[in-house]
Amino acid sequence: EAKQAFKELLKEKRVPSNASWEQAMKMIINDPRYSALAKLSEKKQAFNAY
């Protein structure tokens, strides 16, 4: 599932759970899995759940 892949990406890149969305994006934007969720709102939702 795309959300699961996105959460795994956050874990693998060691994005701190208290990081802001902007900080997290800088760490993950170059990974192909960043595109797993098409909409930015879906990415933010998955990030907030993380």
Results as ranks from 00 to 15, higher is better:
residue 26 K to L: 08
residue 7 K to P: 01
residue 23 Q to K: 08
residue 25 M to V: 13
residue 11 K to E: 14
residue 47 F to H: 08
residue 5 A to C: 04
residue 26 K to F: 02
residue 14 R to H: 07
residue 21 W to Y: 10
residue 10 L to E: 01
residue 27 M to W: 03
residue 36 A to L: 13
residue 41 S to G: 09
residue 37 L to K: 03
residue 19 A to G: 06
residue 24 A to V: 06
residue 35 S to F: 13
residue 43 K to T: 07
residue 23 Q to E: 12
residue 49 A to L: 07
residue 34 Y to T: 06
residue 6 F to D: 06
residue 29 I to T: 13
residue 30 N to K: 12
residue 40 L to E: 15
residue 23 Q to G: 06
residue 22 E to R: 06
residue 37 L to F: 06
residue 7 K to R: 11
residue 35 S to Q: 13
residue 39 K to N: 04
residue 22 E to F: 05
residue 12 E to M: 00
residue 42 E to M: 05
residue 23 Q to L: 08
residue 9 L to R: 00
residue 17 S to Q: 14
residue 46 A to C: 12
residue 23 Q to Y: 06
residue 44 K to T: 05
residue 9 L to G: 05
residue 20 S to Q: 08
residue 2 A to H: 10
residue 46 A to P: 06
residue 13 K to R: 10
residue 23 Q to T: 09
residue 41 S to A: 11
residue 40 L to Y: 11
residue 2 A to D: 05
residue 14 R to L: 11
residue 18 N to R: 06
residue 34 Y to F: 06
residue 7 K to V: 15
residue 6 F to V: 03
residue 40 L to D: 15
residue 24 A to Y: 10
residue 14 R to N: 11
residue 19 A to S: 08
residue 46 A to N: 00
residue 22 E to T: 12
residue 10 L to W: 00
residue 26 K to S: 13
residue 31 D to F: 00
residue 50 Y to N: 09
residue 30 N to H: 11
residue 26 K to N: 13
residue 31 D to M: 04
residue 10 L to H: 00
residue 40 L to K: 11
residue 48 N to Y: 11
residue 8 E to R: 07
residue 47 F to K: 04
residue 23 Q to I: 08
residue 19 A to W: 04
residue 12 E to W: 00
residue 4 Q to I: 15
residue 1 E to L: 00
residue 42 E to C: 03
residue 13 K to F: 07
residue 24 A to L: 00
residue 32 P to G: 08
residue 47 F to A: 02
residue 7 K to S: 13
residue 30 N to F: 05
residue 13 K to I: 00
residue 6 F to A: 06
residue 45 Q to W: 02
residue 48 N to W: 04
residue 3 K to Y: 14
residue 27 M to V: 09
residue 31 D to E: 05
residue 22 E to N: 08
residue 41 S to C: 08
residue 18 N to E: 10
residue 4 Q to K: 14
residue 24 A to E: 05
residue 10 L to V: 02
residue 42 E to R: 02
residue 36 A to H: 09
residue 5 A to H: 10
residue 15 V to C: 04
residue 16 P to T: 04
residue 18 N to H: 11
residue 4 Q to E: 14
residue 39 K to Y: 13
residue 39 K to D: 14
residue 29 I to R: 14
residue 36 A to M: 11
residue 4 Q to S: 12
residue 48 N to V: 02
residue 29 I to W: 14
residue 20 S to L: 03
residue 11 K to T: 13
residue 37 L to I: 07
residue 30 N to V: 04
residue 39 K to L: 12
residue 16 P to R: 03
residue 17 S to H: 13
residue 22 E to K: 14
residue 25 M to H: 14
residue 39 K to Q: 08
residue 37 L to E: 08
residue 2 A to C: 01
residue 16 P to H: 02
residue 6 F to T: 04
residue 48 N to P: 06
residue 17 S to A: 15
residue 12 E to R: 02
residue 25 M to T: 11
residue 36 A to E: 10
residue 31 D to Y: 00
residue 20 S to V: 05
residue 10 L to A: 04
residue 3 K to T: 11
residue 3 K to R: 12
residue 46 A to E: 12
residue 47 F to R: 03
residue 17 S to L: 15
residue 16 P to W: 00
residue 18 N to A: 07
residue 50 Y to Q: 06
residue 9 L to Y: 00
residue 1 E to Q: 15
residue 34 Y to S: 06
residue 9 L to D: 06
residue 31 D to G: 01
residue 36 A to N: 11
residue 39 K to P: 12
residue 27 M to N: 08
residue 29 I to G: 15
residue 7 K to W: 15
residue 9 L to F: 03
residue 20 S to F: 00
residue 26 K to V: 10
residue 9 L to I: 01
residue 41 S to T: 10
residue 10 L to C: 06
residue 8 E to V: 00
residue 40 L to N: 09
residue 17 S to E: 14
residue 48 N to D: 09
residue 36 A to I: 05
residue 44 K to I: 11
residue 27 M to T: 09
residue 19 A to L: 05
residue 21 W to G: 07
residue 49 A to C: 11
residue 18 N to V: 05
residue 15 V to E: 01
residue 45 Q to N: 09
residue 34 Y to V: 02
residue 17 S to R: 15
residue 8 E to A: 10
residue 1 E to S: 02
residue 26 K to P: 13
residue 3 K to L: 14
residue 3 K to F: 15
residue 6 F to G: 04
residue 3 K to S: 10
residue 26 K to I: 07
residue 13 K to D: 09
residue 26 K to D: 14
residue 22 E to P: 14
residue 8 E to Q: 11
residue 42 E to V: 03
residue 7 K to Y: 11
residue 19 A to N: 02
residue 10 L to I: 08
residue 5 A to R: 12
residue 29 I to Y: 13
residue 31 D to P: 05
residue 45 Q to H: 11
residue 5 A to L: 13
residue 25 M to Y: 07
residue 23 Q to H: 13
residue 46 A to F: 02
residue 29 I to Q: 15
residue 15 V to D: 02
residue 45 Q to T: 07
residue 21 W to C: 07
residue 44 K to A: 02
residue 45 Q to C: 12
residue 21 W to N: 07
residue 48 N to M: 11
residue 8 E to S: 07
residue 42 E to I: 00
residue 24 A to R: 04
residue 22 E to C: 06
residue 20 S to E: 10
residue 11 K to M: 14
residue 27 M to E: 09
residue 8 E to M: 10
residue 3 K to W: 10
residue 11 K to Q: 15
residue 42 E to Q: 07
residue 12 E to T: 07
residue 28 I to G: 05
residue 21 W to D: 09
residue 10 L to F: 01
residue 49 A to F: 02
residue 19 A to H: 04
residue 27 M to P: 06
residue 44 K to F: 08
residue 23 Q to C: 10
residue 6 F to H: 00
residue 16 P to M: 03
residue 20 S to C: 07
residue 20 S to I: 01
residue 34 Y to L: 00
residue 41 S to Q: 10
residue 37 L to N: 03
residue 44 K to G: 05
residue 49 A to R: 08
residue 8 E to T: 08
residue 20 S to G: 08
residue 50 Y to R: 11
residue 34 Y to P: 04
residue 3 K to H: 14
residue 28 I to Y: 02
residue 21 W to R: 07
residue 37 L to V: 13
residue 14 R to G: 15
residue 31 D to N: 01
residue 31 D to Q: 02
residue 44 K to D: 08
residue 47 F to N: 03
residue 29 I to F: 09
residue 27 M to Q: 12
residue 44 K to C: 02
residue 23 Q to F: 04
residue 50 Y to P: 09
residue 42 E to D: 15
residue 23 Q to R: 08
residue 12 E to S: 09
residue 5 A to V: 13
residue 19 A to K: 04
residue 9 L to N: 02
residue 27 M to R: 05
residue 38 A to E: 15
residue 48 N to L: 09
residue 4 Q to C: 00
residue 7 K to D: 09
residue 26 K to Y: 05
residue 5 A to K: 15
residue 49 A to P: 01
residue 46 A to T: 07
residue 36 A to P: 03
residue 29 I to H: 14
residue 29 I to P: 01
residue 15 V to G: 02
residue 7 K to C: 12
residue 32 P to R: 08
residue 18 N to S: 13
residue 42 E to T: 05
residue 44 K to P: 03
residue 34 Y to A: 06
residue 9 L to Q: 02
residue 28 I to N: 02
residue 32 P to I: 05
residue 28 I to F: 01
residue 3 K to C: 05
residue 35 S to P: 05
residue 45 Q to D: 13
residue 6 F to K: 08
residue 19 A to R: 00
residue 43 K to E: 07
residue 7 K to N: 09
residue 24 A to Q: 10
residue 49 A to M: 15
residue 12 E to Y: 02
residue 28 I to L: 08
residue 19 A to F: 08
residue 46 A to R: 01
residue 48 N to K: 13
residue 28 I to D: 08
residue 18 N to K: 05
residue 43 K to F: 09
residue 35 S to M: 14
residue 20 S to R: 05
residue 35 S to V: 09
residue 19 A to E: 02
